[in-house]
Write a protein that binds this DNA or RNA. Structure first.
Lengths: 132, 132
DNA sequence: TTTGTTTTTCGATATTTTCCGATATATACT
DNA sequence: AGTATATATCGGAAAATATCGAAAAACAAA
């Protein structure tokens, strides 16, 4: 197997995962920092960090550092491959994804420091949302 | 997680695999029967069968029975989702895939019975090709 | 029904992936 | 320097997936 094929398979694996797919689709609506993603999707911060590592490796997202925060976004449209475009088109139709985006807007309306510090303390699954 | 998201993830998993991706891309060039695929890609016939099961489950390919043979092809273009289109566009640029297609043409030029019976006896990996 | 041929399923093992708490690293502020 | 905060990495057990020979099933022809 040549590298080309291996790379494409790795890229597909990167999005063959509920959390990673949700993160990628979420970012289509605009950049977010790690803790905003964790809060939006209600998953541990370490899981988001690992999901982002894969998405970065696969070339689907890029990051931008601002102070202690890392803001992540989908690669610019110019650089988007046919696969990424098709994938985002398809993911965007899903109810889950649309709901995630609604929730992201709510999280964005909160002060980022509040969101992040809450996420850091939160005991993972089934934890209460910031707004609650 | 709702069904929609789960289904899309399953579809992505189906193609996140070298053999399954090669099979799908190979079929874009036209339908083939199971043993022709096995011979073209030089893998055990049972592996091809299992790969096709996944691709069928994911809705990427359909089958047509003709006598004892099962011919498989990519779903009609009309039914192709954005994801499938993008994926095939991207896969088609890979050298491996193009080479597979060349080899498929050679296999198609042989009598199908010869190909199938050879495949059946062949002891899997590193076996000699029919043409040899 | 018996035989031969193609495809699917099974079995068993090996490998990979997932998951998340705990810990480490990095950066900012005093 | 020390403290606080955000993110990354680690550990390692559980779950999922891959692999392919062998056996079963589906089907045609005799």
């Amino acid at each position: 197997m040549t590298d080309d094929l291996r790379v494409l398979v790795e890229r597909l694996k990167a999005v063959s995962h509920p959390l990673r797919l949700r993160v990628l689709a979420l970012l289509e609506a605009g950049e977010l920092c790690v803790c905003q993603i964790a809060e939006t999707l209600e998953v541990p911060q370490s899981s988001v960090s690992e999901a982002l590592k894969e998405l970065r490796r696969a070339g689907f997202v890029v990051e931008r550092k601002e102070g202690r925060w890392v803001f992540v976004s989908v690669v610019p449209k110019k650089q988007a491959t046919p696969l990424l475009k098709g994938l985002l088109a398809e993911a965007g139709t899903l109810l889950d994804i649309q709901q995630d985006r609604v929730r992201a807007r709510e999280v964005k309306d909160l002060a980022i420091q509040v969101v992040c510090s809450k996420v850091q303390k939160a005991p993972s699954a089934n934890r209460e949302a910031v707004r609650a």
